[in-house]
Structure formats: structure tokens, C-alpha cells
Amino acid sequence: MSRATVLACLVSSSVLALTVAAASPAQAAGVDYVALGDSYSSGVGAPGQSGLCLRSNYSYAAQWATRNSPATFQFLACSGAETDDVLDSQVPAMKSGADLVSITIGGNDAGFAPTVLTCLTSSDATCTAKVNEGKAYVANTLPGKLNATYTAIRNKAPGAKVVVLSYPNIFDTSAALCEMSMTKRKAINSGAQTLDDMIKARATAFGFTFADVRGNFTGHGVCAARPYLNGLTIIPPQNSYHPNANGYTLGYLPALTSAVS
């Protein structure tokens, strides 16, 4: 498969630890759990993706459900989802009165895939400009999108604990050699920080729990010695710049577990 095909697919898709702490199955036995969101919640980047939404049992949501045996588990997260997709498709499918809801959303709205594509194929200056374009969207348009999404979740599940998880910084910036220049890596990470800060602000305003995964991914970005994220991936191309199995197990799952405990 050519590099161009891989990048086109990227745009269109937008050793595991055994000691991760978790709530006991008894504590979760009566919990109705719903996993909403985009590819970072569906499990893209990990083995075993299936269906149009590319859901994987290695996703943090599926792993939490397996470890904790909730009363019900609705896995509604879907690769490529934007806030409008959560509003139009995922929230309406939610079981009314859910007790626990988790979500990652906003990255596709802010242009994650087109930004990465631009940075892979263009100059440092063009990459930085594209990241700044995304930052402007996050500052001016995304807050309203998140507000509408969070309102819909609260209305559908008024008594639920809602956990909004962050995105990681994609790139390691200590490695001298990488598939992107240092300028591009820092620009993309800066864009991720801006996005996460806005998501945290809006989630907190709604009384939701913000679960920050960035600390868990520190030292494990793309090009690190032990990355928790995939770099540019040929087969399957949608795995590019998404967490690998370790990323979900050691990065995302502990953050959800801590937020729920």
C-alpha cells in the first residue's frame, strides 16, 4: 500500500500489564455502563478491531467492562465520530438512566486527521499554521459543540457519573530521530494541549469528571523507546497516531479506573 493511500485512509478514518487497579466486580455489578466517543474510545490502534466503528476489546472501555462486570455495557463509541455524531446517533441509542458514561470527543471536530496529514506532507511552517487553525476552532467553535454534547448526555442519563477522558500528547520530543521534525512534533503536541484544556474546562463546568491521560503517556509518545501510540502505520492505516494495546491498557484504563473509584 502506498504512502498516499495510507494518508488518505488516515483522513477518512479519523506487553500488557496485569496489575492495573480496578473496582471489584461486586462494586460494578449494578452499574449500567455506556462508552461513547470516537476512535480513541472505540479502540482504534489496538488488535481485534471489527465492524464499521472499528471497536476493539483492547479499548479502555471494553477492558474496564471485562474486569468489572457491570450489569450492562453499551459500546457505542465509533471511529471517526465528531460531536454531531454523538448527538445524532450515540446519545439516542443510550440506555436511559445509565450509571456510568465515558467519552473522548472533540479531536475530529478540531481536524485531527487533516492536521496530521498536513504535517506529514508539508513544511514546518505549513504544519504550524494548520495546528494554529485547529487551535482557533477549539477556542471559538468547539466550546458550543461540547456544551451541546454534554447537555444531551446529562439529559439522557441525569444520574450518571460522566467521565470525560483527555487525549495524549502524540509525539515524544526527546528522540533526535523521528518521522516528523521537532518543530512539527512540538506544534502537534501544543495543539493537543490546547484541545485538552478546553475539554477539561467544559467538562468541569458541567460537573463531569475529567480524566487526564497525559501523565500516563509521558515518555511513551510516537518515536519513544517504548511508545504507547502507533506512528505512521501501513497496515491497517487507521492505526496511525492512535494508542496501541499498551496505550489503552497502561494509559487509558488506569485513568478511567481512577476516575470511577
Rank of each mutant, 00 (worst) to 15 (best):
S2N: 13
R3S: 09
A4G: 01
T5K: 08
V6D: 07
A17M: 06
T19Y: 04
A21C: 09
Q27R: 14
A29N: 06
A29P: 07
V31Y: 05
L36G: 12
G37K: 05
S39H: 07
S41Y: 04
V44H: 01
L52W: 05
R55K: 15
A62G: 06
F73D: 09
F75V: 04
L76Y: 09
L76A: 12
A77F: 03
E82H: 10
D84T: 15
V86T: 15
D88W: 05
V91N: 13
V101C: 11
S102N: 13
T104E: 09
G107F: 01
D109W: 02
A110Q: 05
G111S: 03
T115S: 04
T118M: 01
C119F: 00
T121N: 00
T121L: 06
A125T: 09
A125M: 00
V131G: 01
N132S: 11
G134C: 03
A136T: 10
V138I: 15
T141D: 12
L142H: 07
L146D: 06
L146W: 04
T149N: 07
Y150D: 10
T151K: 14
Y167A: 09
N169Y: 09
S174Q: 14
A176C: 04
C178G: 10
C178A: 10
C178R: 06
M180A: 13
M182D: 15
K186F: 00
A187L: 07
Q193R: 06
T194V: 08
L195K: 02
D196C: 05
D197N: 11
I199L: 03
A203P: 04
T204Y: 00
A205M: 02
T209N: 08
A211V: 11
R214D: 13
F217C: 09
H220M: 09
L229R: 01
G231E: 02
L232R: 01
I234Q: 10
Q238E: 11
Q238I: 00
T249E: 08
L250R: 13
G251Y: 02
G251S: 04
V260Y: 08
S261H: 14
